[in-house]
Design a protein around this nucleic acid. Structure first.
Lengths: 133, 133
DNA sequence: GTTGACTCTCACATTAGTGTTAGGGTTTAG
DNA sequence: CTAAACCCTAACACTAATGTGAGAGTCAAC
């Protein structure tokens, strides 16, 4: 059991409790290759302590609008993979992330503008829905 | 055929061409109850000319982030259903729509802020979680 | 040595809009 | 009459993350 559970590692349930992420999601992250783990000879997953921050980071990236396929391509340092040091790729990855967010904001601003336009048209037109052909 | 195709109506393919919305989507809108049509005795759907603006409006509402279930509950005037006049409900519906968009923008601004914060911190956070058990 | 708490894999459900295909009627033009 | 071009219903696929449950193995404590 000592060689089955490498020292300094935690089980999936433990990781789930500590990170606040469901066991199901963690398994999914691991299956999708955005999270690594050791496997005991009983098949159990054993995660390093760093995985706690990793899964949180993954959920943060998801909340940014990325899917797991995107995240998998990110530099390891950005995913906080253990052993990864700060790397140059992080900056450009974060910059494109920032760009993506800005783009989403722009899209929403455009929708807002269109809505306001529609609203002002409704007030002036009020009943000109008899056109079109 | 003249009584099968009521005058002033168009077929689904025609509506698709004129509105730029796929036949499949139009059928789906009709099935979901956000779009009305007549049925010929051959089972064909016949839409009024106003449906052209209606399906465009539906897609606009979808682009605002609403689903068809939401849209179905909207006042008819907001969905531009034929015969509907301007009504008071439209304004409040549009206002909550506006509020929803503003909320989404706020969320994104927060994410952007968090990202910028992360970017400025990212050197120091790799080894801040050494608490075991 | 048995029970309870874990873990594993596999697989289907959900949400929503849209694409696609199959199999079969209908209309229209030549 | 026939062929092209429409239309119909029904049903499954896709995307993506997560929930849920079955059936089975494992571990720890009493």
């Amino acid at each position: 059991m000592q060689n089955r559970k490498p020292t300094g590692t935690i089980t999936i349930g433990n990781l789930a409790k500590r990170s606040g992420v469901s066991v199901r999601s963690i398994r999914h992250y691991e299956e999708e290759g955005v999270l690594t783990c050791y496997r005991g000879d009983n098949g159990y997953r054993f995660f390093s302590i760093e995985a706690i921050t990793q899964v949180r980071q993954i959920q943060r990236l998801i909340s940014f609008g990325f899917n797991l396929k995107d995240i998998r391509t990110f530099p390891e340092c950005m995913r906080l993979v253990e052993g990864a040091e700060f790397c140059e790729e992080t900056l450009s990855a974060q910059q494109s992330l920032l760009q993506s967010i800005d783009h989403q904001i722009e899209t929403l601003e455009e929708r807002k503008y269109q809505l306001l336009k529609t609203m002002s048209e409704n007030i002036s037109q009020a009943s000109s829905v008899i056109d079109e052909r």
